[in-house]
Computed example of a mutant assay.
Amino acid sequence: MPDFYNTYWWIFLLRGIFALILGILAIGWPGATFATLIVFFGAYLFIGGLFAIVGAIAARKTNENWSIFLFSGLLGVILGFLTFYNPFATGAALIYLVAFGAMVAGLFELIIAIRLRKVITGEGWYITGGLLTIFFGLLLVANPVAAAVTLTWVFGIYAVITGIMLILLSFRLRSSRR
């Protein structure tokens, strides 16, 4: 019985190539609008979801976890479609989600730093880090346009790294198939 990952190594390759191209476009297109990036993100979700669905259907007889791939693929297709339907709402939601996540993470860093006062010295740096993380979240909310530009660059770097990792993974899977 063939192993799913080794047999369908090319799915990882295609996803990696698409992510790499998307990341290069996001980094190299500084004049592009945030809405364009969101549409690219929606395309990535949609196409990645389609690949995951194809892989899940192909693996349903050989992989007991095929339903996880199917669910992931369906979710990607739905989110991609919703992004195409209203990219501005998706962009705004993304900015506020990242801002809220930063503020919550900063708050947890503060709580941990205060608790660490009994265990270590120099916890002031961790407190400073928590305050900076909260401040970052507040800056994103206060200036969503700058946040959109910043998130564009961060997403581009993320997509390039992810694309390279998926491409390398696909080659390793392909070579281990022999």
Results as ranks from 00 to 15, higher is better:
Asn63Trp: 09
Lys61Tyr: 07
Ala159Asp: 09
Asn6Phe: 02
Phe40Pro: 01
Lys118Gly: 00
Leu169Ala: 05
Val39Ser: 03
Gly55Glu: 00
Thr83Cys: 06
Ala142Val: 11
Ile68Thr: 11
Gly124Pro: 01
Phe51Trp: 07
Gly106Ile: 05
Gly156Leu: 12
Leu131Asn: 07
Leu107Met: 12
Tyr96Phe: 15
Lys61Phe: 10
Ala93Tyr: 08
Phe18Tyr: 06
Thr62Asn: 01
Pro87Glu: 05
Thr33Arg: 03
Trp153Leu: 10
Ser170Ala: 07
Ile38Ala: 08
Asn143Arg: 09
Arg172Pro: 02
Val160Glu: 11
Arg117Ala: 05
Pro30His: 01
Phe40Tyr: 12
Ile47Phe: 10
Ile57His: 05
Leu13Asn: 01
Gly137Arg: 13
Leu45Arg: 09
Val77Glu: 07
Ile17Met: 07
Ile24Gly: 10
Leu14Val: 09
Ala105Gln: 12
Arg178His: 11
Thr162Ser: 15
Thr62Lys: 04
Thr83His: 04
Phe41Met: 15
Ile111Pro: 01
Phe40Ser: 04
Val98Trp: 11
Tyr96Trp: 15
Phe100Asn: 12
Leu97Thr: 14
Phe12Glu: 07
Phe136Lys: 11
Thr62Ile: 13
Leu37Ile: 14
Ala102Gly: 03
Ile38Asn: 02
Tyr44Cys: 06
Gly163His: 01
Ala32His: 03
Gly16Ser: 04
Ala148Pro: 02
Gly129His: 11
Thr152Tyr: 05
Leu20Trp: 05
Leu82Lys: 12
Phe81Ile: 15
Ala59Lys: 03
Gly73Ala: 13
Ile11Gly: 05
Tyr5Arg: 13
Val54Tyr: 09
Ile112Phe: 04
Leu25Phe: 13
Tyr5Glu: 13
Thr128Ile: 15
Ser72Asn: 14
Val119Pro: 01
Phe71Thr: 13
Arg117His: 02
Thr150His: 04
Gly156Arg: 08
Leu110Glu: 02
Val145Trp: 02
Leu14Asp: 00
Val77Ile: 14
Asn143Gly: 09
Pro2Met: 09
Leu74Ala: 15
Leu20Gly: 05
Tyr158Glu: 13
Leu140Gln: 08
Arg177Tyr: 07
Val77Pro: 11
Met1Ala: 13
Leu173Pro: 00
Arg115Ala: 00
Trp29Asn: 12
Ile78Asp: 08
Gly28Leu: 07
Gly31Asn: 10
Ile157His: 08
Ala32Ile: 05
Ala159Trp: 11
Thr33Met: 01
Pro87Lys: 04
Thr152Ala: 09
Trp10Arg: 06
Leu75Lys: 14
Tyr158Trp: 15
Leu50Met: 15
Phe155Lys: 00
Val160Asn: 09
Val104Phe: 12
Gly91Ser: 08
Trp29Val: 01
Phe51Arg: 04
